[in-house]
Simulated scan of single mutants.
Amino acid sequence: MNARIVVAALSLSAAALGGIVLSENYTDSAVVPTKGDRPTLGFGSTFHEDGRPVKMGDKTTPPRALVKALAHIGKEEAVFRASLAGASLHQAEFDIYMDWVYQYGTGAWANSSMRRNILAGDYVTACNSLLLYKRAAGYDCSTPGNKRCAGVWTRQLERHAKCMEAQ
């Protein structure tokens, strides 16, 4: 594996952007993806480009949805980078954690054990911390047979596997 790169020099890869939009399942009308979530639109955007929150009844098109996703990612990526000042990651790790940030937000990231572990240089524990985020609206999405939010847990397992692969 190549050496880690200072986070300030990294940005989301095209492959990771494609992964985010594919995993978010495009919708042309606002939906609540899992019970207790905020309304999302397009490729999982919870806000419009101008900062207004998505409301039920809002509509979009695929090109506008991509613009929304890119605006969202751009804002979150700047905050994410600043939160890891001086830290280094592999490109794969950067992409994995940005995918997580797209789903959970920079507020959750700022207080996450993943961030603390990366800053401490404990990359394996940071990967393992991904598995701590398995709840949606208070419900444990890792519960076997769950039909309420199984995708939340499946996505975490995928992120964890990719993260461990990068170690």
Rank of each mutant, 00 (worst) to 15 (best):
V6P: 11
K55F: 09
A15T: 12
K55D: 13
E24S: 08
T46Y: 02
D28G: 07
A15M: 13
G18Y: 07
P53A: 01
G57H: 12
L17T: 13
E49P: 05
T34L: 14
P62G: 06
V7F: 01
K35P: 06
A9T: 06
T60P: 04
T34C: 12
K55G: 13
V21M: 04
K35Q: 13
P33M: 08
P33W: 05
V6F: 11
P53K: 14
R52N: 09
T34Y: 15
S29K: 03
Y26H: 09
R38G: 14
L17D: 00
T34V: 14
P53R: 13
A15S: 10
P53N: 13
T46A: 06
E49H: 13
P63I: 08
V32W: 08
A15G: 10
A30L: 03
V7L: 06
L10I: 11
V7R: 02
P62A: 07
P63G: 11
M56R: 10
S29E: 04
G36H: 14
P53W: 07
A16Y: 01
A8S: 07
T27F: 02
A9V: 05
T60K: 03
E49A: 15
S45V: 03
N25D: 11
G36A: 15
F47W: 02
V6K: 00
T46L: 00
M56Y: 07
M56S: 01
G57T: 12
N25K: 15
A14V: 15
T46E: 10
Y26K: 09
V54N: 02
R64S: 03
G44I: 05
